[in-house]
Write a protein that binds this DNA or RNA. Structure first.
Length: 237
RNA sequence: GCAGGUAUGC
């Protein structure tokens, strides 16, 4: 079982979701049962391939093998259903869970956002604020694209204020989402100020800033940034 | 950085 887990984990790390699931099938056919460490990996492979049928089969396997007590396994189920755009099933698992953490909430939140249910996402985010889960940088990075879509500078200022209070403002995931949000809400200057303050810039923060200048047709600034990116040892993708 | 497992940004 350790060997199967190692192989499936390695495949997932290289993004090979379908082959990873293939190994799980072989493992099951050879009569070995998964444990609570393997199920999250298998569910991640279903989420990666967006294969709802396989995901439901694994869900049944989880129930049969009695690993519902494990929070990580349950979180992986919520994430799998959310990524497969079966939000009803994701909600149903979420609703039946007796224990939830910030990952549980963020998985479902991200599901609403990625499926385009913005209002549900905002409602759910408000619910999160009144619950006693502590928001993580992943939670914030997940909800911010909704504010990019809304395009309201006032709302952008408000959510930014909330984020400053969490201390996650300069997290690279949150920061690049904020840069994109301001660029989409008519606050490109705020994007740049934030960009300048981010220490660990990665390819995504650069792209967010470059995209902002491109959309505003500020091509001189954009080109300058491309050169600066090169000088910092990053190459455009 | 990793220490067999889950969520997040252009």
């Amino acid at each position: 079982l350790f060997s199967w887990t190692a192989v499936i984990g390695a495949l997932l790390n290289s993004g090979s979701f379908a082959p990873a699931f293939g190994f799980y099938r072989e493992m099951v056919m050879s009569g070995i049962c998964a444990d609570h460490f393997l199920y999250p990996l298998v569910l991640k492979s279903c989420a990666g391939t967006r294969d709802l049928r396989d995901g439901r089969r694994v869900h049944a396997d989880v129930l049969r093998s009695g690993f519902c007590w494990d929070l990580v396994v349950m979180n992986s189920l919520v994430d799998m259903y959310a990524k497969c755009e079966s939000l009803e099933e994701a909600e149903s698992v979420f609703g039946e869970m007796t224990e939830r953490d910030v990952v549980t909430w963020t998985s479902l939140l991200a599901g609403y956002v990625q499926t385009g249910y913005r209002l549900e996402a905002l409602d759910f985010f408000r619910e999160m604020l009144t619950s006693d889960v502590k928001l993580s940088s992943a939670t914030l990075a997940a909800i911010l694209p909704v504010f990019s879509d809304l395009g309201s500078f006032d709302l952008a200022r408000q959510i930014h204020g909330l984020i400053v209070g969490t201390g996650c403002e300069l997290d690279k995931f949150v920061a690049s989402a904020l840069i994109d949000m301001y660029a989409s809400c008519g606050g490109l200057g705020y994007s740049r100020l934030l960009f300048n303050r981010v220490k660990e810039r990665d390819i995504v923060s650069w792209n967010a800033m470059i995209k902002g200048y491109a959309q505003a047709k500020l091509f001189d600034e954009m080109i300058e940034l491309l050169f600066q990116m090169h000088a910092d040892g990053m190459s455009p993708n």
